[in-house]
Amino acid sequence: MGTGGGGKVLDIKVADIKSVAPTFHHQSVKLSEALTKLITTLDGYGEPWGDDKPGKDFGKQYKPNQTTSGTTPTTPSAAAYPNNAWPRTARSRNR
Rank of each mutant, 00 (worst) to 15 (best):
residue 12 I to S: 01
residue 59 G to A: 15
residue 82 P to V: 11
residue 45 Y to N: 09
residue 52 D to A: 01
residue 19 S to P: 01
residue 54 P to V: 01
residue 25 H to A: 08
residue 25 H to P: 01
residue 24 F to A: 11
residue 59 G to K: 15
residue 22 P to G: 03
residue 29 V to C: 04
residue 3 T to N: 11
residue 43 D to E: 14
residue 6 G to Q: 11
residue 61 Q to F: 12
residue 2 G to F: 10
residue 69 S to A: 15
residue 72 T to Q: 11
residue 89 T to E: 13
residue 2 G to V: 06
residue 95 R to F: 13
residue 4 G to I: 08
residue 6 G to W: 09
residue 48 P to N: 00
residue 41 T to R: 11
residue 80 A to V: 07
residue 24 F to D: 01
residue 77 S to Q: 06
residue 24 F to S: 03
residue 1 M to I: 11
residue 55 G to D: 03
residue 26 H to V: 01
residue 47 E to R: 15
residue 18 K to Q: 07
residue 19 S to V: 02
residue 86 W to T: 07
residue 14 V to R: 13
residue 42 L to F: 08
residue 54 P to Y: 02
residue 58 F to D: 04
residue 38 L to V: 10
residue 13 K to T: 10
residue 90 A to M: 14
residue 92 S to P: 02
residue 23 T to G: 05
residue 74 T to H: 05
residue 81 Y to H: 08
residue 50 G to D: 01
residue 63 K to I: 10
residue 89 T to Y: 10
residue 44 G to H: 07
residue 63 K to T: 14
residue 35 L to S: 04
residue 11 D to K: 08
residue 63 K to G: 04
residue 25 H to I: 02
residue 15 A to S: 12
residue 3 T to P: 05
residue 48 P to D: 00
residue 86 W to Q: 08
residue 26 H to P: 00
residue 77 S to A: 06
residue 36 T to G: 08
residue 27 Q to E: 03
residue 75 T to A: 06
residue 66 Q to M: 10
residue 37 K to C: 02
residue 71 T to R: 03
residue 19 S to D: 07
residue 22 P to N: 04
residue 82 P to N: 10
residue 70 G to K: 05
residue 88 R to G: 12
residue 93 R to E: 05
residue 15 A to I: 05
residue 47 E to V: 12
residue 73 P to E: 12
residue 10 L to I: 01
residue 68 T to I: 15
residue 45 Y to P: 05
residue 61 Q to M: 15
residue 65 N to K: 14
residue 56 K to A: 08
residue 1 M to H: 14
residue 27 Q to G: 00
residue 57 D to Q: 15
residue 91 R to G: 11
residue 51 D to V: 10
residue 42 L to I: 09
residue 25 H to Y: 09
residue 9 V to Y: 12
residue 87 P to G: 04
residue 61 Q to K: 15
residue 88 R to D: 15
residue 32 S to T: 10
residue 61 Q to C: 14
residue 57 D to F: 04
residue 12 I to P: 01
residue 17 I to E: 08
residue 35 L to Q: 08
residue 78 A to R: 02
residue 95 R to W: 11
residue 42 L to P: 01
residue 75 T to P: 00
residue 70 G to T: 03
residue 18 K to P: 00
residue 3 T to G: 14
residue 63 K to H: 15
residue 19 S to G: 02
residue 14 V to F: 11
residue 55 G to K: 02
residue 7 G to C: 06
residue 56 K to Q: 15
residue 65 N to P: 00
residue 64 P to V: 04
residue 17 I to A: 13
residue 13 K to R: 06
residue 15 A to V: 07
residue 35 L to F: 08
residue 91 R to E: 13
residue 84 N to E: 13
residue 90 A to L: 15
residue 44 G to E: 05
residue 47 E to I: 12
residue 6 G to S: 09
residue 61 Q to W: 12
residue 16 D to R: 09
residue 15 A to L: 05
residue 8 K to L: 12
residue 68 T to N: 15
residue 16 D to C: 03
residue 89 T to K: 13
residue 12 I to K: 02
residue 76 P to K: 09
residue 44 G to I: 03
residue 9 V to H: 11
residue 64 P to D: 09
residue 79 A to K: 14
residue 43 D to W: 07
residue 8 K to D: 09
residue 15 A to Y: 04
residue 1 M to L: 14
